[in-house]
Design a protein around this nucleic acid. Structure first.
Length: 367
DNA sequence: AAGCCGGGGGT
DNA sequence: ACCCCAGGCTT
């Protein structure tokens, strides 16, 4: 069987897309800013997860100038809970660069787009084709899976030679007319029909030209490299309250949950128990010596490449020292305006409704 | 090339 | 449990 030709694939895919496309907010606009925003939001993020964030983000930052004028904290606060917070930083930086250096006009070529922070080959291709009608491919995980099956590509299509093959094929397939619709059609097919585990071939417009289906290996493609187990790390965090305030630290600008406000604490050394290690962490991060009382709630959090296992502990300061290293006693009413680690915010909320908190005054009076 | 970066939904 | 998602950056 020959490889399916571009004309057959284009015609079938576009006709199918016109009949079956789902109605998303970013598909009801031609505004490049909104399309750019959607692409940042949806990087490695399911449509259903990102949609409410898209609506809230636009409400808060209706155009690129509003976004550029905002503080990073405001942007992070809207992003809170979505994950991959570097995207928020990069989007904010991109908005500022476009407003400051290009008069607010978003670049129209994939190459110029790719020079902006947080925009790689996929996002550049998506914005260039969807917002500006450029004839460039936009290959996300869905599109790569569809092409791996359609052309029986047995290499890992997420990187290396397999990815290169997909690029060549996609570049040839994307039509000069309606390139954005074609790219979205490929993704849409992967998201709704050519799904990872058990593809619904009976509903596929490419059924009669699909080499993977013909060979009966559609469910075995795409292949992928071996997965690494993610290590479990012990963590402990300190919940301290005084009057109407809680002690928070600003996480480092790079790394996990970068730039978010958080409870003091974090990963514990391999050796050592929380009772001795948590005060060390808190002291180092805030300058404040503390006593550990008891667990408030467990922490069982899975990230992409590690798991956090431990607890949040009620702690009491043993001196009235002023916090250092950027740590702050934050008024509870102020919390709503700060970007906070999501599961810490949940703990803070439940602590507020819990039993009375041991007063900071006790610590303040101690020597 | 490999590691890092979140969180959630489907199976 | 495991997989995977409208990926990109750093080393």
């Amino acid at each position: 069987m020959e490889n399916p030709g571009p004309r057959a694939v284009r015609a079938r895919l576009l006709r199918w897309f016109d009949a079956h496309r789902r109605d998303f907010p970013w598909r009801r606009t031609g505004d490049p800013y909104r399309i750019l925003l959607a692409e940042y939001l949806l990087q490695r993020t399911r449509v259903a997860t990102g949609t409410p964030y898209y609506e809230r983000f636009l409400e808060r930052f209706p155009d690129i100038r509003a976004l550029a004028a905002a503080s990073l904290d405001d942007v992070l606060q809207v992003w809170e809970g979505l994950g991959f917070y570097g995207r928020a930083r990069n989007l904010h930086a991109t908005a500022r660069a476009i407003v400051d250096e290009r008069g607010g006009r978003i670049p129209t070529s994939a190459k110029a787009l790719e020079a902006l922070p947080g925009i790689g080959p996929y996002t550049a291709g998506a914005v260039a084709s969807i917002a500006f009608g450029q004839r460039v491919p936009a290959i996300d995980g869905n599109a790569a899976r569809v092409l791996a099956r359609l052309y029986t590509i047995r290499e890992d299509v997420s990187q290396g030679p397999g990815r290169a093959r997909v690029d060549v094929i996609a570049r040839r397939l994307v039509p000069a007319s309606r390139p954005g619709a074609f790219n979205q059609a490929l993704m849409e097919l992967g998201a709704t029909v050519c799904v990872p585990r058990v593809p619904r071939c009976e509903s596929c417009p490419l059924l009669d030209v699909c080499r993977g289906r013909r060979a009966g290996i559609q469910g075995l493609l795409p292949t992928h490299g071996p997965r690494r187990p993610s290590p479990t790390v012990r963590v402990a965090f300190a919940l301290m309250s005084a009057d109407d305030r809680v002690l928070l630290v600003r996480r480092p600008a790079a790394g996990l949950l970068a730039g978010l406000w958080a409870l003091p604490g974090g990963e514990l050394p391999d050796a050592g128990d929380h009772a001795t290690e948590l005060p060390k962490l808190v002291r180092a991060q805030t300058g404040i010596p503390v006593d550990v009382r008891g667990p408030v709630r467990d922490v069982a959090h899975t990230f992409s490449h590690r798991k956090w296992s431990g607890a949040i502990y009620r702690c009491v300061p043993t001196s009235s020292d002023v916090p250092s290293n950027g740590a702050r006693w934050v008024r509870r009413s102020e919390l709503t305006r700060l970007p906070v680690v999501a599961f810490h915010r949940a703990a803070l909320a439940s602590a507020a409704s819990g039993p009375p908190i041991e007063s900071f005054d006790a610590g303040r009076r101690s020597p």
